[in-house]
Amino acid sequence: MFVRTAGERDLAAVRTLLVETWHATYDAIYGAAKVIEITDEWHSIASLRLRLTRPNSEFLVADDGKRIGGMAFAAATADAKIILLNQLYVHPDCQRRGVGQALLDEVEASFPEARTLRVEVEEANGGAIAFYRSKGFLPADHTADPREASGPTTLSFEKPLG
């Protein structure tokens, strides 16, 4: 797979990737009905389209010419030296093949002025936590999930850059 900037023509495939990946990852955490609710809102074509033109951001896809196997979206914070990795998802069929690493490498290259890459991960998502830790991310702090006061806890991780 090669990593490139996402375009309008990719949005339907990215939505499909996100819905399938979210069900595989989060049904056990939130339940399938809640995953449908979240993906319908967060991963709608309209929501994804807004990311294409967001300033100081990068919307990437991993593409093999036949399918989109992964995606990432990152944006600078108010402090341009801190980048928030909002999303990095690899379809379950494409995991453990270097796709996540390739997306992460391109995110880092897209923000040469950045000194810190930050990500938040559900505490119950052990696979993602293991991935980020193996890529040099270190725990930063705990934050409550803003969607529900009694919901899962998200963990913040940061990776120093440059």
Rank of each mutant, 00 (worst) to 15 (best):
P55T: 12
L155G: 07
A78P: 05
G65A: 12
A32L: 09
T53R: 13
A46W: 05
D93F: 07
L84A: 12
T25D: 06
G31S: 11
R133T: 14
L50E: 15
V14T: 00
S57P: 11
E113S: 13
S44Q: 03
T5M: 10
I38S: 03
Y132K: 06
A124V: 05
E120L: 11
P112W: 03
G127L: 12
L104S: 02
L52W: 10
V61S: 01
N125F: 09
A62R: 08
A76Y: 06
G7I: 11
F157P: 06
L11I: 04
L104P: 06
F131R: 11
I82V: 15
S44F: 01
F2W: 12
E20Y: 02
D141V: 08
A102I: 08
L60R: 06
T39E: 01
V90R: 03
R15E: 00
V107P: 04
V90P: 02
E122I: 15
L117T: 03
M1T: 12
A74H: 01
L85H: 00
T77D: 14
L88D: 02
V3D: 04
Q87D: 04
T154S: 11
F131M: 09
Y30G: 05
L11V: 11
S134T: 03
D10M: 04
S47G: 15
A74D: 00
A124G: 04
L88I: 15
E148V: 05
A80I: 09
A72E: 02
V3I: 12
V35C: 10
I29W: 07
F137H: 06
D79T: 12
S134Y: 04
P92C: 07
A24H: 02
E123Y: 09
R67C: 13
A80V: 13
D63W: 11
L117Q: 08
L84T: 14
R4G: 05
E58T: 15
L103N: 00
L161F: 03
R115H: 07
A33K: 08
T116D: 01
E37L: 05
P112E: 00
S110Q: 00
A13C: 09
T5Q: 14
Q95D: 15
D10L: 01
L11E: 01
A78C: 07
A102P: 08
K34W: 05
L103E: 00
A149I: 04
F137P: 06
V3T: 05
E106I: 01
G7K: 14
A102E: 05
T143S: 12
A102W: 06
G126W: 08
F59S: 02
F157D: 02
A74W: 00
H23F: 03
N125T: 08
E113Y: 04
W42S: 13
E106F: 01
R51K: 15
P139M: 07
D93V: 04
A46V: 10
P112D: 00
L50M: 13
T53G: 11
F59G: 04
D141H: 15
G7E: 14
H23I: 09
